Computed example of a mutant assay.
Amino acid sequence: MPVPSPSVRPREAKLFRNNRSQAIRIPVEFELPGDRVLIYRDGDKLIIEPVKTPANIIELLNAWRQEPPLGPDDQFPDIEDSHVRPEDVF
């Protein structure tokens, strides 16, 4: 039977400004993997979760399947349609 890891006690962290954004210094024992996170509010709390990078094509396709489909009000940006010249192909 695996030994449960001891829970990390809450610690105070430093808030600071980075240009126009507020940032937080995360203590090493709370370090998250990767270089991107999801952040959302739950009442007075901010929840920060690491973004899980798909390990293979099956995980990627499953992640896409869980995203909400586009709705009738979703809009795509206008794209300038430029003509392709033969020299652009090679």
Rank of each mutant, 00 (worst) to 15 (best):
F30P: 08
N62M: 12
Y40G: 01
D44C: 04
P77F: 02
Y40S: 02
N18K: 12
D35H: 06
N62L: 13
P27M: 11
I57P: 00
P77T: 00
I26Y: 03
A63H: 04
D78A: 14
E31W: 15
D35T: 03
R65I: 04
N56P: 03
S7K: 15
F30M: 05
A55T: 05
D35R: 06
S21P: 00
P86A: 09
V3G: 12
I79W: 01
G34W: 02
G34L: 06
I26R: 08
R17G: 11
R9Q: 08
V51K: 02
F16H: 07
F90W: 09
E31H: 15
P33W: 02
D88P: 12
D81E: 14
P33R: 09
K45S: 14
V37N: 03
H83E: 15
K45D: 14
Q75H: 01
I39T: 13
P68K: 04
L60R: 15
L15R: 07
S7Q: 14
P72K: 12
R25Q: 11
V89I: 15
G43K: 07
A55Q: 05
L32E: 11
D74N: 11
F30S: 01
S21D: 04
E87W: 02
V89K: 13
K14T: 14
I47M: 10
V3K: 12
F90D: 14
N19M: 13
P4Y: 04
I39M: 15
Q66M: 08
I58F: 04
P77C: 00
K52P: 04
K14W: 05
I39W: 09
A23K: 03
P54Y: 03
L60C: 07
D42W: 01
E87L: 05
V84R: 02
P77N: 00
F16L: 14
Q75T: 08
A23S: 15
P33C: 12
L61N: 07
R65Q: 05
V8F: 01
L46Y: 10
S7L: 15
A13T: 11
V89E: 05
V37W: 03
D74I: 07
